[in-house]
Amino acid sequence: MSHPPDRLDLAKAAEMHREIELLYEERGLAGISVVEDEIRWLSDTGNRLRSEAMKAVERGMDESNQNDIWSGLQVFYNLGELRSTVDSLINKYKGIGVKSVGSALDMKAISASSGGFGPGGVQRSGTPQIGGGKRAGEALWERMARCMDELHKVMTAVWQLQTVLSKKRVPFTQILFLHEVWQVSE
């Protein structure tokens, strides 16, 4: 059994959440105790919506399921947070890639894992010295293989995100999600 009704409910809930937030802000309802109690509940509900939407987006990016990505992004669009969410996702995956490359090329760790003598470092000529000969080379290639696997996952996930953003349109206006993300703030 598929989950489209749940996705639809999340998107509708996000839309209603945003409308209530806007009414609260525009009508100056701050300070009214009954309203403040409900606003706390609304804030908790918004956090749950964001959490469920992010789970859907990340699951979709990991499993190459564009429908999950789209349904999660629709929630963030309805909350008025599409651009910041996409920026956050890109930064997250960029960080994973940078960390993976840094870990793969950590000469001290390569030297230590290969049973090399000494902590590794840089010779006067500027070339890395990892010691251990063949074992060090094998350790480096093993780390590079893991790094490339990780970079492949990162690039595939970001490609999935870009594909959905460039295909899916905002209901009613038919503007691509990608254009919503690229819009320059006024």
Rank of each mutant, 00 (worst) to 15 (best):
P171F: 07
L73T: 02
P4R: 13
E19K: 10
M54K: 04
G31Q: 12
S114C: 02
L151Y: 04
L42Q: 09
R18A: 05
K94C: 05
P171C: 10
G131F: 00
A30M: 10
A112G: 09
G116H: 05
R40Q: 11
D149G: 08
M61L: 14
R7W: 00
E38T: 04
L89I: 03
I90F: 06
W70V: 00
Y77C: 01
M144P: 02
K108A: 13
S43E: 14
L22Y: 09
S100G: 09
V170R: 15
F117N: 12
L73F: 02
G121N: 11
V164T: 04
S84H: 07
R50Q: 10
G102M: 11
T173C: 12
Q162T: 06
W182L: 13
S111Q: 06
W70H: 02
R124Y: 11
P5E: 09
W141Y: 12
R50M: 08
G46D: 07
G95E: 09
D62T: 05
S71W: 00
L49F: 01
A30Q: 15
R50P: 03
R48V: 04
G126N: 12
T173N: 13
G126S: 14
F117K: 13
K99S: 14
V158S: 06
S43T: 04
T45P: 07
Y24N: 13
L8G: 10
Q129A: 12
D68W: 03
D68K: 07
